[in-house]
Amino acid sequence: MPTFRNLVLATALTTAVAAPASACPVCSRPTGRAVRAGIFDRRFGFNLLAATLPFGVCLGVAAAVRFGPRGGGS
């Protein structure tokens, strides 16, 4: 039982002082607010374009293959 109690104590302490938890984008801590501000800054549209454009192009190619003319045989 002491082992179990120590485990619970260690988990509680780790959870309470976990730095990443206070830095998450939805956390209302100074670091969390800074992360949120950094995500939704004036480059947001540009960054969104960088994240989506490659997939958009690839999706367009796949759609062109799927709905394009039917290829011939060998």
Binding site: L59, A62, R66, G72, G73
Partner: peptide, 16 residues
Amino acid sequence: GQAKLDRRPVLSAGLL
């Protein structure tokens, strides 16, 4: 010279 099987469905699925 004209295959009856449609290659487009498996091609587009494989590409995605």
